[in-house]
Design a protein around this nucleic acid. Structure first.
Ligand SMILES: [Mn+2]
Ligand SMILES: [Mn+2]
Ligand SMILES: [Zn+2]
Ligand SMILES: [Zn+2]
Lengths: 146, 146
DNA sequence: GATCTTGGTGCAAATGATTCTCATTAAGGA
DNA sequence: TCCTTAATGAGAATCATTTGCACCAAGATC
């Protein structure tokens, strides 16, 4: 039994919700993927098991509330998530030109954020640090174009 | 003539776009408001001048590209923006319970981010740091509830 | 394990923010 | 002032996400 399964079960029990076959499939799909995913992607991985897209949409916020996944970015009009467990906090560097998303460790910023949170007495749930701009390749291209 | 007007005019000229009455009204509305705003809000402030909602939506990305405004948060399904000029970079502390958004200065993090950017040769455009969780009041409430 | 209560599910229709189409207008360079 | 062409208003179209509803299945109880 994986840790995320335990965590989800505990979360549901504590909320008086049921652990269903469909919810479990959504969870498993989310942890099988190791990149950002949207609802449709998750759905494509489990539709064969007769899980509806609506249920995927209904389960996603549960996983977020359980602290298992989080919204990573929103691109092309769709919300893209990523699982959290086993995936250390990171910064997203989003290239506006090629749309690629790079990640770097967040630890160098963590301390400053925690201090700030403490001073305003804010209880941190999730941290999103997304930086848009030009990746190395694309800023080189820009230069050459002029 | 305000600085944002100059900046917008220059941006448009450099892109070969026209400075129209409607675009100017959108710009002015965005800088008259000093909180986060969505397209509909902007629209409500200038609809009397016969500016269409479509034009508001068309102008918003121009203002973003011009570096005059940026996406602040997405809440209740709507994109909310904020103007940048005269509004130093800041972190958003978003309470999941009361939905209030507090802001703190970003300068303590700026240095670490710049160093990181330099090392991966990423040219920073905009920085979004949004932290969700519980604000002081709401975390007190949670405690009392149990 | 059978029963019961209640939330969960699939499916299809609804919603709503954002985008697009198109006929008409107006920047702004010549 | 004239001309070219992008921009605009109005409304229709998109499409990710949400909902309503009739049936189903967790999981608590006995
Ligand atoms: Mn990520
Ligand atoms: Mn802000
Ligand atoms: Zn790139
Ligand atoms: Zn709060």
């Amino acid at each position: 039994m994986q840790e995320h399964e335990n965590q989800f079960r505990d979360f549901l029990k504590q909320k008086g919700l049921k652990l269903t076959k469909s919810r479990n499939l959504v969870l498993e799909a989310a942890f099988k993927l190791h990149e950002h995913f949207d609802a449709e992607t998750l759905y494509s991985h489990i539709r064969a098991a007769n899980v509806s897209l609506a249920t995927v949409y209904r389960t996603l916020p549960l996983l977020v509330e359980a602290g298992l996944i989080q919204l990573a970015v929103r691109s092309e009009g769709r919300d893209r998530f990523e699982h959290i467990l086993g995936h250390p906090k990171h910064v997203h560097w989003i290239c506006e030109r090629c749309k690629q998303v790079a990640e770097t460790d967040l630890s160098s910023l963590q301390e400053a954020l925690d201090a700030e949170a403490k001073s305003i007495k804010f209880q941190i749930g999730q941290i999103t640090i997304n930086i848009t701009g030009l990746c190395r390749n694309c800023s080189i291209d820009e230069y050459e174009q002029d």
